[in-house]
Design a protein around this nucleic acid. Structure first.
Lengths: 208, 208
DNA sequence: TTTGCATTTAATAGATCTATTAAACTAAGC
DNA sequence: GCTTAGTTTAATAGATCTATTAAATGCAAA
């Protein structure tokens, strides 16, 4: 029998692992539980991926890239820098809304597992340039024209990412503590999308 | 022999636990390792705190309160709302800088352990009011006077906390990925303190 | 039908972790 | 000096987790 390149079982294991790793992180997820969710024997997890670490890396790097490239989008030509920035913030926000568990997974694993972070550095050397370069020149041109106050591209990215990401890290906690319904959380999140755009656009203005 | 109310050993265990929990979270810290750092036998950890969970709660609630009350500061009377806001942002920022591992611990444990979050809700009912109430009335007065655009106190708090907290969650990662020296990180952090103040103060202004 | 190979299962080795227990140690008070 | 109570230690029970192994199963081709 020829091996199915995308075996049903292998795919089920990957999906179960992704779900559980996103929910609880690496340390709190056991291969036994992955197998249970995937509907197979625990040894099968090791048959396909040999180690839990391999399995984790299979889902992790894809997720990190998703996380980082959320900022990088193709824009309509001819629109203003501010409009472009607004589109980027919204695209990043929408990516996070579609993957709300992503920031937690990425931060949790990179902070608790230093080797993972060092390994990542090698694989992701292209990303900063992909994300920063298209924006950097434009930002500096706008500053030179006096349309935007003095600031670096790093400051801008950090601010956007902070505002967008923290919302999705904190909202499960906010939901419980403030006793919000699902509907109320949805409304709050949608409102923060506009709020984050407003904050960034106002904050880059010159004068004072 | 009379029990020392603040036994040397008990205190050493608490401090070791605090250090390790802050570094690696609950799941990745073992009582054996806590004992090693505290310089005592592993069974002593259980002698003093019975369970690992008890020990964790002993350090955790104190830390959550520290995290939440960072925003709550006594201000000089008679200064403007904007100056007061600036002081709050800076005080919150300074608290985080003095406890950089705090946000990770709080988010990590509250997100991976739902029972911890529910339990916390009971113990922290006073906090939202302590933090929000002093500001809420003033904010609404400023909005009525037309000094500040229409926004809620929750939006303001979320923005401040997002900008301040995310910096300290992300900076260990940023340090590795961008290959920054300790000095460069210090400089970046200090710069972000002013940047966050500027962002918030600009973002609350009326007029588009 | 039989052979061969990928897949799946049950069983388990080996490591580690929490928590308990029983015994040893230490020093104050009678 | 002996008793007593708090403190500390070594040993280990019991649970859980990763990873391996050997055997069983299913299916396609010969």
């Amino acid at each position: 029998m020829i091996a199915n390149p995308d075996s049903n079982t292998e795919q089920a294991i990957l999906e179960a692992a992704e779900k559980l790793f996103l929910e609880k992180g690496f340390a709190l997820t056991s291969t036994t539980e992955i197998a249970r969710v995937a509907g197979c024997n625990q040894a099968l997890v090791h048959y396909y991926f040999r180690t839990k670490d391999n399995l984790f890396n299979s889902v992790f790097e894809k997720k990190v890239r998703l996380f980082a490239t959320g900022l990088l989008q193709v824009h309509q030509p001819g629109i203003s820098f501010e409009q472009k920035l607004k589109q980027m913030i919204e695209a990043h926000f929408d990516m996070l809304r579609a993957n709300p568990g992503l920031p937690f997974l990425v931060f949790n694993e990179l902070l608790t597992n230093p080797e993972r972070l060092k390994k990542l550095k090698g694989n992701m050397l292209d990303l900063p340039k992909l994300v920063f370069f298209p924006l950097k020149a434009e930002l500096e041109a706008e500053i030179a024209k006096g349309n935007i106050r003095q600031m670096t591209i790093y400051d801008l990215i950090i601010s956007v990412v902070s505002l967008n990401v923290m919302l999705f890290i904190a909202s499960p906690i906010l939901k419980i503590l403030a006793e919000l319904s699902d509907g109320e959380i949805l409304k709050l999140v949608e409102n923060r999308k506009q709020e984050n755009v407003i904050i960034i656009l106002k904050s880059i203005k010159p004068t004072i």
